[in-house]
């Protein structure tokens, strides 16, 4: 870019900024519920300032060192927006609307010098396109981080290990049991068995929507690992339709203690540990 063009842009920073902010505010997708006008102006000011300084250095390559500040601000901004819940369109509008601001200014200034106008337009166009790409890339990255965090949280909260009695653990499994879940369930369960010295673990699958051969295989693996540690497993919460699928698929669970309800599993656990639960002679409140 001609150095005078760069100087001209720098001198007119205020006008560009005004036009840019105006463009953003008049856009129908403006999320004034997520970001205040002051903040928007400040972000725009920061970026434009850094951008014009970089352009003034004579470089126009976004990957060059002079533009490090620009990419930093853009990345930071789009990651924040991804977390705040901006849509991709709303996020990309930020950079796109700057294009318009540049063009209207250059148009007015260089209407008698088409060669300079053309050169400046093409160069700015390329630069801003690259900025758009950086924005989108980091925006998606931000979204992916959100998804990953949520998956982790979901896996954590969805596999509680409950100590129901001295020596008896219960594990209600809710949701689909895939390989990743099984791994977490198994690790949590075995760790708890060691920590509490429990001899019996009840896996309750009432909350598992379907049991196919893969899920059954995961259950069998969990039972086998528990046995290797020296504890016993009872699978409870087997609904009628699950029993039907298991038999139709030809899955063999005959080596595993299975019970229809958590209550009957608990009863079995008591008898395995030689615990007796009786009603007392005393009057009860019920």
């Amino acid at each position: 870019m001609k150095s005078e063009t760069a100087a001209f842009l720098k001198k007119n920073k205020k006008r560009i900024l005004e036009a840019w902010v105006q463009n953003q505010m008049s856009d129908s997708t403006l999320r004034d519920d997520l970001i205040s006008n002051e903040e928007l102006s400040k972000q725009s000011d920061d970026l434009l300032d850094t951008l014009l300084k970089a352009v003034g250095s004579g470089e126009l390559n976004l990957e060059s060192e002079s533009f490090q500040g620009v990419t930093d601000i853009l990345s930071e901004l789009s990651i924040t927006r991804a977390r705040q819940g901006f849509s991709p369109r709303e996020t990309s509008m930020f950079v796109m609307s700057l294009k318009k601001a540049f063009y209207s200014l250059l148009d007015a200034q260089y209407k008698d010098d088409p060669a300079t106008l053309y050169q400046a337009s093409v160069e700015l166009n390329n630069l801003l396109d690259h900025m758009s790409i950086v924005t989108m890339e980091t925006f998606i990255q931000g979204r992916e981080e959100v998804i990953l965090r949520q998956t982790d949280e979901m896996n954590e909260i969805s596999t509680p290990v409950i100590r129901v009695w001295e020596g008896i653990l219960a594990l209600p499994i809710i949701g689909t049991l895939d390989s990743a879940r099984t791994q977490i369930v198994m690790e949590n369960l075995l760790q708890q068995i060691v920590e509490t010295g429990s001899r019996i673990a009840i896996l309750d699958i009432s909350g598992v929507p379907t049991v196919d051969s893969l899920v059954a295989q995961h259950l069998i693996k969990t039972v086998s690992a528990t046995r290797l540690m020296g504890a016993e497993c009872i699978i409870s919460g087997i609904r009628a339709e699950i029993a039907q699928t298991i038999v139709h698929l030809g899955i063999d669970l005959s080596n595993i203690n299975t019970k229809a309800s958590l209550a009957s599993a608990l009863k079995l656990a008591y008898s395995m540990l030689g615990i007796e639960v009786r009603r007392t002679e005393r009057k009860t409140i019920f």
Binding site: K221, L228, G230
Partner: peptide, 26 residues
Amino acid sequence: VGMQPAVAITLVELGLTLTGVYTALD
């Protein structure tokens, strides 16, 4: 006795369930 959780999980994946061997926590 005393098999580590990670060892138990690995053995199952390996395909060994130590049939005929009794196990205990400690």
